[in-house]
Design a protein around this nucleic acid. Structure first.
Lengths: 156, 156
DNA sequence: CTCTCAGGTCAATATAGTTGACGTTAGAAT
DNA sequence: ATTCTAACGTCAACTATATTGACCTGAGAG
């Protein structure tokens, strides 16, 4: 994803004929997702990490001592899919896994300091994009955005 | 993506501790994307198609006689990545490619009737989700949503 | 003390993308 | 006219992210 993609996303966002009045909204959802995540992904790529790693870091940051099983449930992907990125993060010492003395059945995950820093920076890039957009429309607009997204997100 | 994913997306959407005030918005963007595309993806899967096929159908529907090169530019992926899904669609006769007599250099793509129907139905599922959300908040809310997404999408 | 089941790992496969190498065609510059 | 170049397009090999299936381990229930 370099020059061509960038150009396409920027240039052609409004270039397609709209067959329906909601086509513009459809396309905004697509490019919005990319717009929010692009800078964070670029940062992560410099560290040899990507979206799945970030998602793991994000969740563990917000729920320390989470078990792998719970993590899987939140991420909504198979435990096998979690395995590889998780092991990379452990190996890189961005998070730790320990078994508690009593609950010997599951491992408890926590971020290390290095892991926290990366998580904060990556998520920070995403929040920055959102913040700028919200600032542009003011609190009522931000609230409306949240309301719309909430309804859409409920279609899961 | 079946029971576990569904449960995760629905149940855990609000369950994580929020470290920042924009965390909720961040998560809404993630689950919103899934919420909008889920039903369409399920429909496409019954036909043995998926998101890249839909994206091609979507663009060609809105720009008939588009060349493969322009398609690539709009999609923002490499021509090699377009090749496989494109060939499947041609083979299934959901779209046609012809070379114009004078412009022999590029192929011109068009949807067949079958392709149009699938495109309309798949995109229709996505528009339905958006329409319901917009109806819930009214035109000003919808406009605010569009404004916010426009700013976010510009970060490409 | 054994049976079951959740937690966790390994192996094989599918899908969507990448880069590299290469053939074809149109148009420009000798 | 001939050749050079660049765009268009295809094929092959590889990477990353997911999937399902098979299996091991250990806690707790009977």
């Amino acid at each position: 994803m370099k020059k061509a993609a960038k150009r396409a996303a920027g240039l052609h966002r409004a270039s397609l004929t709209k067959l329906h009045d909601l086509d513009a909204a459809l396309e905004l959802m697509y490019y919005g997702w990319r717009g929010m995540t692009l800078t964070a992904d670029q940062y992560l790529a410099t560290l040899g990490l990507s979206r799945p790693h970030h998602r793991i870091l994000y969740v563990v940051a917000r729920q320390p001592d989470i078990s792998i099983g719970s993590l899987i449930e939140i991420l909504g992907i198979s435990k096998q899919a979690v395995n590889r990125p998780l092991n990379l993060l452990l190996q890189r010492k961005l998070l730790t896994s320990k078994r508690s003395p009593e609950q010997h059945r599951s491992k408890l995950l926590r971020l290390t300091e290095a892991g926290k820093q990366i998580e904060q920076r990556a998520s920070g890039y995403e929040r920055k994009v959102l913040r700028e957009a919200f600032d542009r429309v003011g609190p009522p607009g931000a609230a409306a955005w949240m309301a719309v997204m909430g309804v859409i997100a409920d279609n899961n």
